[in-house]
Write a protein that binds this DNA or RNA. Structure first.
Lengths: 233, 233
DNA sequence: TTGAATATTACCCAATTGGCTAATAAATAA
DNA sequence: TTATTTATTAGCCAATTGGGTAATATTCAA
């Protein structure tokens, strides 16, 4: 019950990080550097994607620092997999590759951040904390490559005042929690168990979500939530 | 050639900022807050784009903080213009609008950063410094909207032979039809009506879809269908 | 021709869902 | 202080869902 209150007050919630990097020296050095930073906790590290994905499945970290050039499964494929096994985990690519295709492909595969390895640890720690909250960060040396992807708008008129994300702001925090679980295919019973409330409560939340999103059932709610980006997939 | 070297050595280079924002209170408050920060210097401010663009032409600032909802020339147009009159100047959109079109259009018009107005000044100052160096930053509340733009890479090399195409090809044509309707939130009854078959038939199709996709209910089926691109949304 | 896959229909049954009203407590806003 | 919002719980009820088994017709490849 005090859970939300705790989360609200804990602005400085600890960010749990897993590092996937094949070079031991880089990997270990990075861990030591990051563990020096307040509110960042490197909970595990792996020298390849296979081991890393197992760890992610267990730990469900907030952030994964992912190298691109890994033996076996490469960082790109691993990034896509992380999104499957732990949708809420954010991925930051940490590499020395600055080719356009790799930057675009990384972000397309689900990464929220792209850092080159000459980044200083202080900046990196800031990036980790912010990406954990949902932000997007792209290193100064490759940002222009990524920004090219965004199409130039034809009419800079600013498309009137139609509110597509109007529904989003109407949902309460609790309802957003429920919606996220709903999208994961959880039943009312499962949602109730996860949030440690009665089934009636879960049901009530789902009902108000349906009304607020103006849909008839939970399938439509899930689809709409994905379409509008209310929950990440 | 010496550019990078210079930038690297001048870690504490002052960042020159211009603020374009119509509300005086916000504008002035922002200036005071930012001038408190080391290495950030607000060199000018304007309450509309016309004045702002003149100032930018004179001052050639490192960063412009741009409001979207401006009287006269709006922030989107202004952003594009800034890139014409001062190509090296970076633009950070500072707005309360969180609509997808505006986020995409802003980045497409040349902005390197997108912040919502409830950002705290400390974070904003960090964003300003990093965007000045060339980085890209998108606020945690809208980052997912921007990241959607990046296309999923087809060939992440190596494996990926797995799930997506496999599951898709396993579905029969009829099942794909049903799945599409299911994603639209149709009930078995509605699906049956649409396909002009009995409810039993629709139900049978849904059942085999669930089995083939290895999911427990239609919500998960819908989510998986969208995630794997089996149906387009 | 014959077997395999697909599409169709049907019935039974336990579980879940969504709509409805309604009460309580806590926090927030006016 | 009072009103509103939010989170929680509860019960009732009609409808839907998903699992199971099973039969029939069609098409297509071996």
């Amino acid at each position: 019950m005090g859970q939300q209150v705790l989360d609200k007050n804990l602005k400085n919630k600890e960010v749990r990080v897993i590092i996937i990097e094949d070079y031991k020296l880089t990997r270990v050095g990075l861990r030591y550097a990051l563990n020096e930073i307040e509110n960042i906790n490197v909970v595990a590290e792996a020298q390849n994607a296979e081991i890393g994905l197992e760890l992610i499945k267990k730990e469900k970290p907030d952030v994964v620092l992912m190298d691109l050039g890994l033996p076996g499964i490469n960082g790109l494929e691993a990034t896509a997999q992380v999104k499957n096994i732990s949708p809420d985990t954010k991925i930051i690519i940490l590499t020395s590759h600055d080719r356009e295709e790799e930057v675009i492909a990384s972000l397309g595969s689900g990464a929220s951040g792209y850092c080159l390895k000459d980044i200083d640890p202080i900046t990196l720690s800031g990036v980790i904390k912010n990406v954990a909250k949902g932000a997007c960060w792209i290193d100064s040396n490759v940002a222009h490559l990524a920004l090219k992807v965004f199409p130039k708008p034809e009419n800079t008129e600013i498309m009137s005042v139609s509110h597509s994300s109007e529904a989003k702001t109407r949902l309460t925090e609790r309802e957003n929690e429920v919606l996220k679980l709903l999208v994961q295919g959880k039943s009312n019973t499962q949602i109730a168990q996860e949030l440690i409330v009665s089934v009636h409560t879960a049901k009530a939340h789902v009902c108000s979500i349906l009304q607020k999103l103006c849909v008839d059932d939970r399938v439509q709610a899930a689809v709409k939530a994905i379409k509008e980006g209310i929950v990440s997939v």
